[in-house]
Simulated scan of single mutants.
Amino acid sequence: MIKRNVLISGGSGFIGRHLTSLLIEKGYSVSILSRSKKQNTAEISYYKWDVATQYIEEDAVLKADFIIHLAGENIAEKRWTKKRKDEILNSREQSTQLIYSVLKKNNKVLEAFVSASAIGIYGAVNGKKICTEETPNANDFLGFTCYKWEESIDFIEYLRIRTVKIRTGLVLGKEDGFLRKLLPIFRWRLGAALGSGKQYMPWIHVDDLCNMYVHALVNPMMAGPYNAAVNDNTNNLLFSKTLAKVLGYSLWLPNVPAFLIKLAMGEMSKIVLTGRRISSEKIERAGFTFKFKNLEEALRDCLRK
């Protein structure tokens, strides 16, 4: 039996690695777009691409039955200078355009194109309003970036390919993702809430996120944007208290003042000092069931050896 092939951009990252393992486990063959040529394995084929020069080994796209598009510069890796903002936006738009150009030139038909997006589309602001997929995008940097990101994905849909946009919250994984920077501090029992601590933190376990991508591949009725975050109204203070509890102690330090975080991170501090409430109703109506909806259980699983 010929296995159906899934091409992943950004496949070597945190989410991509987990997703690759899950797809192989479920019987798919996997191809990965990489900036450097790597040795193929029995289970994974690697193809080179360079978004900056708009180069791609076209066979990667032509052999694919599905594409999962995760590529994009990490928004939390460096301070948001003008140059860095351009890199964040361009990496998302131009990578999608490169794949689109190959699809269009070769009249390639996919069964589905599933792309990462982010709940940042609703903006770096605080508020109690619950954001659904119908909530308008914000006009700040995060909102505009996600809007342009999703707009570039719409060109794939114009090729009559079913497209799905996974608007992702904070991803929790086994000492990786969002937890990677927090754990050293909290393990030294120096963890604390940030700013007011009241900002919401929509989160999702990496296993649920990867299963959501697979669900989007196999469910022909899924199309358009879906929020990928647990709807439990966790805020920063509750998250911090829960993480400390899982590590065996109670928070004892006062909240880190917002002005110190702004001094250290600049405009990027909005990532940790703001947060929206997010609805997961649409993805659950599409038949998806979260394995982890309890924050403490999710964190304990992430920290399990």
Rank of each mutant, 00 (worst) to 15 (best):
K305C: 03
E57G: 03
L253Q: 07
A118I: 13
E297F: 10
P225T: 05
M222E: 09
L62K: 14
R285D: 11
T41N: 15
A116L: 14
D65N: 15
N231S: 15
A42K: 13
K104Q: 15
G120N: 09
N107Q: 15
Q199S: 03
A112L: 10
V51T: 14
A60N: 11
V246P: 03
G10Y: 06
C146Q: 05
R187Y: 06
G195P: 02
M221I: 07
A216K: 06
I156S: 02
C302H: 05
N137R: 12
V114L: 03
Y226T: 06
N90V: 00
N107H: 15
L190W: 12
F113Y: 15
V246S: 13
L89Q: 12
K293A: 08
V109G: 01
A229M: 02
N126C: 11
V256T: 12
V102S: 10
N294M: 08
S29D: 13
L7A: 03
L217I: 12
K128V: 11
N219H: 05
R92C: 08
L247Y: 08
G248L: 11
V171Y: 00
N137G: 12
H205G: 02
G72A: 11
L273T: 05
L22D: 05
T53N: 15
F259Y: 11
R277N: 10
V256S: 04
N90M: 07
V218W: 03
L19F: 04
I185A: 08
I121N: 00
N255K: 13
L299D: 04
D154T: 11
E157I: 02
